[in-house]
Design a protein around this nucleic acid. Structure first.
Length: 291
DNA sequence: AGCCAGGACAAGT
DNA sequence: ACTTGTCATGGC
């Protein structure tokens, strides 16, 4: 899509229609944890939350036009970047199908894609993504959101009408025992040691971003206690624009077993494996489950 | 009430 | 290299 403002009304930016952006799926697909759907909205769909150190809303009407709520026109580039509006999902979706030579797999990819069309990978903060997915392990999405919310409330910087995501330094200074009081359970140690590592420079997220290969980035992340392949893959995919990362969780295991041959390697999805993964995850977790 | 959750890790085969 | 028990908590 071509990102541009069609009109403004106060702090509401009206952005045009896009066939490959679903506000609902993008904010419902489990990649971000600080957005909630607004009930009784004037729009067909509205999500409100905190990103880029600001409280912000995204909405969409029934014919697909979408709106940015609570932003000045001059801030549009920030939100355009956050939503990665420069990424051409039409082209990515073509390649996801085209690159799969096995017709069996192609059909699967097509159905997953169609069911999940409109999901965009957000450009989220690196540390927030890492920390959030450490919390996500062996956990459910409502509780993940609750823990993150209390983490922000207690240790996040005041950004006016909300709290920012806490810095590594803030969580390091808080200490493991204080984090445990937020009911994050066995993850308290993991959060703390990750915060310590990033805070004292033992782990440079800049270096993760500059990693030459997926495996190099993964190695840096999994060096942390409590960060395994799944959390590392989510962090790389959602926080570092590594679209080739393919996180395997219980839902993906399920869909792989159900619809793919045993020796199928998800990395054969290539440079956009992670986006294919999102489609598979969404269709299995949110569509299959509701049948 | 009990199973499960966008897992990781250590210990055991 | 694979399997299993454990970890803390609460959603459903």
């Amino acid at each position: 899509m071509k990102p541009e403002i069609l009109s403004t009304d106060g702090n509401v930016l009206h952005i045009g229609n896009s066939g490959d952006f679903s506000v609902f799926k993008t904010f419902d697909c489990g990649q971000c944890f600080r957005f909630d759907r607004v009930r009784n909205s004037d729009y067909a769909v509205e999500f409100s939350g905190i990103a880029r150190s600001k409280k912000i809303g995204f909405a969409q009407n029934s014919i697909g036009d979408f709106y940015i709520l609570g932003a000045a026109p001059e801030d549009f580039p920030v939100w355009s970047d956050y939503l990665a509006l420069d990424v051409d999902y039409g082209k990515i979706n073509e390649n996801i199908v085209k690159n799969i030579e096995n017709p069996n797999d192609r059909r699967v990819a097509e159905s997953a894609r169609d069911a999940s069309l409109g999901i965009r990978i957000l450009r989220q903060d690196r540390w927030e993504t890492l920390c959030s997915f450490i919390i996500s392990q062996n956990n459910n999405i409502p509780r993940i959101k609750k823990i993150i919310s209390s983490l922000c409330e207690k240790y996040g910087a005041d950004i006016g009408e909300a709290k920012d995501f806490p810095t590594p330094d803030a969580l390091y200074k808080a200490g493991e025992n204080s984090l445990r009081e937020l009911k994050c359970g066995f993850r308290a140690k993991y959060i703390y040691s990750a915060a310590a590592a990033v805070s004292n420079g033992e782990l440079s997220l800049e270096n993760v971003a500059k990693a030459k290969s997926l495996t190099d980035g993964e190695k840096l992340l999994t060096a942390l206690v409590g960060v395994g392949p799944k959390v590392a893959a989510c962090t790389l995919l959602f926080g570092f624009e590594r679209y080739d990362a393919f996180p395997v969780d219980v839902w993906i295991k399920r869909v792989l077993k159900k619809r793919f041959s045993k020796d199928f390697d998800p990395l054969s999805f290539g440079s956009t494996a992670g986006i294919a993964q999102q489609y598979l995850f969404y269709s299995e977790r949110y569509l299959e489950g509701s049948k």
